[in-house]
Design a binder for these strands. Structure first.
Length: 264
DNA sequence: TCCTATGTTGTATG
DNA sequence: ACATACAACATAGG
């Protein structure tokens, strides 16, 4: 599910627990979301702390706790965060629960592609500080996009948009939405884009991100039917611009939906 | 039964 | 260094 706007929505789901104490931590130590970190350390170190706050950066999340404890969260394909009633008993796919006096903060993930990290440090962990500029940050300039295409000239622009080192938070549906608005066929080589096409790409990356954050990031609203999004999933969808049949094919290893008559 | 899935990472190969 | 293809991870739903 989660791309940048969905990730922001899930961050907010834990916000009621900010500035509140974590009285107990319940987790499944064998769950694959703990690969690369020690679940028992997480349990021991977070118990009794105050959850100070949480932030998103693209698809990454970071939660800060008192005493210099940091929990990084990546939701993978099917991960989600939820706030459940106090004393909540975890279900089959609830792999981490932070119990608080008035609620239980849950990390749920059926497919276990998600992942948590844990760091003990006064400042936010190095991996967080090393993330590339977010697509809505000042540092995300047309120049950065131009430099990126230089380094990946031969990559189909669809696969290019999925590269998190350049476009943190952009995922499969956002990439298709952006290309459709830019009227760019997904197979176009990144290096073949004209300066005008690159400027348009930069603008639409920000436009789609801003709108998605407003609509989905705030309260998981529905995107308008004027977007590609609502037509892209099922076979037999039609382009909202042309009314023609949408195409679905693999580009860069991912299912890609586009409008052949519209995107040249 | 078979196919698909809003993600990432590793390996093999060109 | 790039690029592509593929598998792996694990589960649910059509």
């Amino acid at each position: 599910m989660p791309e940048l706007a969905e990730v922001e929505y899930f961050r907010k789901c834990w916000a009621p627990g900010f500035k509140r104490r974590v009285t107990a931590v319940e987790l499944h130590p064998k769950a694959r979301i703990f690969r690369g970190c020690d679940p028992l350390l997480v349990q021991r170190e977070l118990t009794g702390t105050i959850l100070r706050g949480g932030w998103t950066h693209g698809k990454q999340m970071l939660f800060g706790f008192s005493g210099g404890r940091w929990l990084g969260v990546h939701l993978g394909m099917t991960g989600e965060l939820a706030a459940e009633p106090a004393g909540f008993a975890p279900g089959k796919h609830d792999h981490l629960v932070l119990h608080q006096p008035n609620r239980s903060l849950v990390f749920r993930d059926p497919r276990l592609f998600g992942r948590v990290r844990f760091d003990l440090s006064q400042k936010p962990p190095a991996w967080w500080q090393a993330l590339p500029p977010g697509v809505l940050d000042d540092g995300f300039t047309p120049d950065r996009v131009a430099t990126a295409v230089q380094r990946r000239r031969g990559t189909p622009v669809k696969a290019f948009l999925l590269m998190q080192e350049f476009f943190p938070g952009i995922g499969n549906w956002m990439a298709d939405e952006i290309l459709w608005r830019c009227r760019l066929a997904p197979h176009r080589k990144a290096g073949s884009l004209s300066p005008a096409e690159l400027r348009k790409l930069h603008r639409e990356i920000r436009q789609v991100s801003r709108s998605a954050l407003r609509i989905i990031g705030e309260r998981w609203g529905d995107l308008p039917d004027s977007w590609l999004f609502n037509h892209r999933w099922k076979d037999g969808g039609h382009c909202p611009k042309t009314g023609c049949a949408l195409a679905r094919e693999q580009v860069g290893g991912r299912t890609t939906c586009w409008s052949p008559g519209w995107q040249g």
